[in-house]
């Protein structure tokens, strides 16, 4: 059984079907790329799966459980974590706090332990700090750790968002355009990181426009068009598929 799947997903905006009867599944340990021309419904698909918006019809299944319409926070608890296309940093917080915030099950996030400065909170916070600093170092953000994240460049923000997501130790990581606005060197670096994570067992779903990097990275490509599934399969086969070529050429004048 697949780890994450959608069945007959539908989402309309003002009569327009952004996602139209979409059934996609992702196996455990896979890296799946999601591509398609602008307006194909990639981000809406992500939003429906991650609980940001409720689908009008269809189901989302995670690890055998029906999670359709579940809130983002409960999905995060189940191990599904996403990033956002328009890098949403917590700009009024430092890089360090951005990453630390994501730590799950912190007793200090409840009133009483926070007021009493309980031992459990302090022990946990010490671990969180260590883990956060490690991640910040891994993503080479340590020289920026005390900067407010509003001062970061576009590429640095992508790295921070990834580091923050990893703090949750997700089972499924959903990345919405992790390479957008990132220079080629950094793109390769981010791609390497994603591959490392995948090799350690993390399931990854990536939306990306940068087809070259994407097809090198992923095990399988899913191409959407007008909210529906156009083609899926091995990256090489998909990219040489007539329908995909046409979709992209057809979409070129958008």
């Amino acid at each position: 059984m697949s780890l994450l799947s959608t069945d007959g997903l539908v989402k309309e905006f003002g009569g327009l079907r952004a996602v139209d009867d979409l059934s996609v599944s992702v196996e455990e340990g896979e890296i799946v790329g999601v591509m398609g021309p602008n307006g194909a419904g990639k981000s809406t698909f992500f939003n429906c799966v991650s609980g940001v918006i409720k689908p009008d019809a269809g189901t989302v299944t995670l690890d055998g459980a029906d999670v359709t319409g579940d809130a983002p926070e409960s999905l995060a608890h189940r191990g599904l974590v996403r990033t956002f296309q328009d890098t949403r940093e917590l700009e009024t917080m430092t890089v360090r706090d951005n990453v630390r915030l994501a730590a799950p099950d912190q007793p200090g996030e409840r009133t009483l332990p926070a007021l009493l400065r309980s031992g459990a909170m302090q022990d946990h916070e010490a671990t969180v700090r260590e883990r956060a600093d490690e991640l910040i170092e891994t993503f080479e953000l340590d020289h920026l750790a005390d900067e407010y994240s509003s001062n970061l460049s576009g590429g640095q923000r992508k790295l921070l968002e990834l580091a923050r997501a990893l703090m949750l130790d997700p089972e499924v990581l959903m990345l919405d355009e992790p390479f957008a606005g990132v220079n080629p060197t950094l793109t390769r670096e981010i791609a390497d990181r994603i591959r490392d994570l995948n090799e350690k067992g993390m399931t990854v779903v990536v939306i990306e426009h940068e087809i070259e990097t994407l097809s090198e990275l992923v095990d399988r490509l899913v191409v959407l068009q007008q909210g529906g599934l156009l083609v899926e399969g091995d990256p090489e086969d998909v990219l040489s598929d007539e329908r995909v070529i046409e979709a992209y050429l057809g979409g070129a004048d958008e």
């Binding site: 983002p72 926070e73 949403r88 700009e91 915030l101 996030e109 926070a114 949750l168």
Partner: peptide, 22 residues
């Protein structure tokens, strides 16, 4: 405490805070 961190995160961006499991 970490409690305050969550509050400030909500002020900054509620959706992101939710998607981080809060």
């Amino acid at each position: 405490a970490p409690y305050g961190r969550v509050l400030r995160a909500i002020r900054a961006d509620e959706l992101v805070t939710r998607s981080l499991g809060k």
